[in-house]
Design a protein around this nucleic acid. Sequence first.
DNA 1: GCCACTAATTTTAGTACCGAAATAACGGGG
DNA 2: CCCCGTTATTTCGGTACTAAAATTAGTGGC
Lengths: 389, 389
Amino acid sequence: MNAVPRGDLVPAGILGLLGTQGPTSRVDIARSLRLSPATVTQVIKDLLTRGLVEELASVPSTGGRPARLLGLVARTGVAIGAKVTADHVALVTVELDGSVRTSTVHPFDPREPASVGEILATALDDSVLGVGVGVPGSVDAQASGIVDAPTLGWHDVKLGPALRNRLGVPVLVDNDVNTLAAAERLYGVGREHSSYLVVTIGRGVGCGIVVDGAIYRGAAGGAGEIGHIPLTDDGPRCGCGAIGCLEAHIGSAGLLRAARERGVVGPRGRLATLLKAARDGDASALAVYAEAGRLLGRTLAGVVHTVDPEVVVLMGEGVDAWEFWQPGFEPALRGRLLPARRELPIVVEPWTEVQWARGAASLVLASPFDSAGTGGDQSRMVRARLGTP
Amino acid sequence: MNAVPRGDLVPAGILGLLGTQGPTSRVDIARSLRLSPATVTQVIKDLLTRGLVEELASVPSTGGRPARLLGLVARTGVAIGAKVTADHVALVTVELDGSVRTSTVHPFDPREPASVGEILATALDDSVLGVGVGVPGSVDAQASGIVDAPTLGWHDVKLGPALRNRLGVPVLVDNDVNTLAAAERLYGVGREHSSYLVVTIGRGVGCGIVVDGAIYRGAAGGAGEIGHIPLTDDGPRCGCGAIGCLEAHIGSAGLLRAARERGVVGPRGRLATLLKAARDGDASALAVYAEAGRLLGRTLAGVVHTVDPEVVVLMGEGVDAWEFWQPGFEPALRGRLLPARRELPIVVEPWTEVQWARGAASLVLASPFDSAGTGGDQSRMVRARLGTP
DNA sequence: GCCACTAATTTTAGTACCGAAATAACGGGG
DNA sequence: CCCCGTTATTTCGGTACTAAAATTAGTGGC
């Protein structure tokens, strides 16, 4: 058998691994990146002489020669992550190890896409490796960053080029759910599994698909739009123009509509009212959530039959009320899955707004692992910044 | 940038390309297989000296040096394809260029899985490169071939190992729909597109997913089971045990049930009766098909939103009546797709039973291109057989 | 303390590819 | 006919890996 090289990726991959997973031995690096130990030895030798990596303590022997841990020489690199919504931009700066250093929120008017650049510029300094941006819409490619986002009123907005021009650092743009999938890959289920779905419930319903460790974007960057899976032929109209989409039923607006119809909240009531009613044990409120859970479970059964993932992760604002969705969700999902998949693990992750932005930063931090070339030249630029102190 | 090698695959890939696409110039080979012209020159030099390939006529110059066509030296390799059903096994032998040489059908009792080996043995001779088998169920991996097929009453049937043992040639086993997807890749839309769905309608409903030119099988070989996407909470019970699956509505049995309910056919009527009634313009018969088309269209809209393919191919026994499905299908699909995808091309392919078996043979013929390693050691063995006269 | 055993790392001797530059084989314009 | 532009192919000099063998650094038994 011969080599399976992947561009100038191995040194960056090792640096990225050490940055995200902490100190690691040569064998473990080889196993994680599917390289031969020989290659790791060679590359590490180079990184040692360049002073980017240092040898740390040995781990106690397990019967053979003890492994020598390797660590990143303290560096100042950070990534900036931004999540764009209809009325604000959330910004975080994230260390190489994934910890959030700072977090801010800025008001934002989507009619002025360029102002995203101004907001990001406030956080920029020499230590920034790159900027990741998550948007609620479809993006042609991370490295390009041309956005269609109906909820922002954006069509063909050239956000990526504009930001690169304004900021002068690598900029990766992707659908917001895909950014969460990227974060999950570095810090979540992606460490243990190579194929999974990241499903978000909240204002809309989205799904990031990870296959063999790579984010699957579809032919035109539109994969994972499960919010627009049709459920019914009548029923609520969705923002997309069609009728009876999943999102129209169980997105924030759909929940609220159902709650009003049942009289749980008044005509001007808010979701918080519905949630409070459920917490107080109101039967109608519980029924609204249970019905939403049932629809989500049934739809996800279909998605799982189509994609066959190892795990499903649930996130988004909506999981705050998950305890009330679950009674409807579990039977609807499990009862519909084929026997072979009935034990599919479902992971519900606690949620804060910062997660979105942190996910966006993960686009940058995942660049060293980007052997599929998803991030194109922008990922290469991040790697270049990582390689020279 | 450096090399992107793929195992000992390049020589086999070139042979496979010449076998399936016919005579090709070096530059075109390089373009098709995404290799550098330098590499092609080197490998071809070797293949020429080994007598596996010969130089043919030049193509007329298009302004520069004329390209020299290269062709396979006449060889006797064939692949055998088999499609297993509940009552028969269809067998074909297929030439390297994809043309069907012989085609036979053998009665079969699924309670005796081993008899598949006996049937295949009748077709075996020295020229056989390998055997491909399509089964109506899920398969753990092509190169292994352990089958779960409820419709055959098979659970954990070790078909692959048994056949390899009996036949002594490489055996690749896959879900029947995936075999069609493999055929499509070599001879159909796969020549022009790298991501597509192959949807079959007939007794069941299935879907082969091709992503970046590779068949996507999911975490456990169960991807594409769209027949079990839940549509309704009441309604017909499906063979899988759940209620209201797509397949229960629009599979052969579902169609027949609907036809009986509407009185189009008698209690012992058959599908042919329904089809004939539709051809005679019977309104109820047309309504049965239109409703099936509507359900299929609505469901596929959801699948397309999830997967975002470039094209969808429709096949299977059911397409014989496609003209009657279409009136329900088109509006249901297009009306539900997001605007960006509304123009999705749908290709309906004419259908004969032989297609299934030919698809199975494609598993073998695709082995030379199998850079993803889907076929494992069995594909390697096919390549070995291809490389030594 | 010496030996057998184990596991991590390094060395060695390739291999399979690539990019860039050189060369070859045409057609067409003067 | 000779030169030019164009396209195909080949040559050349790397590069980035690999597998297998050798080496190193521990453990535990005696």
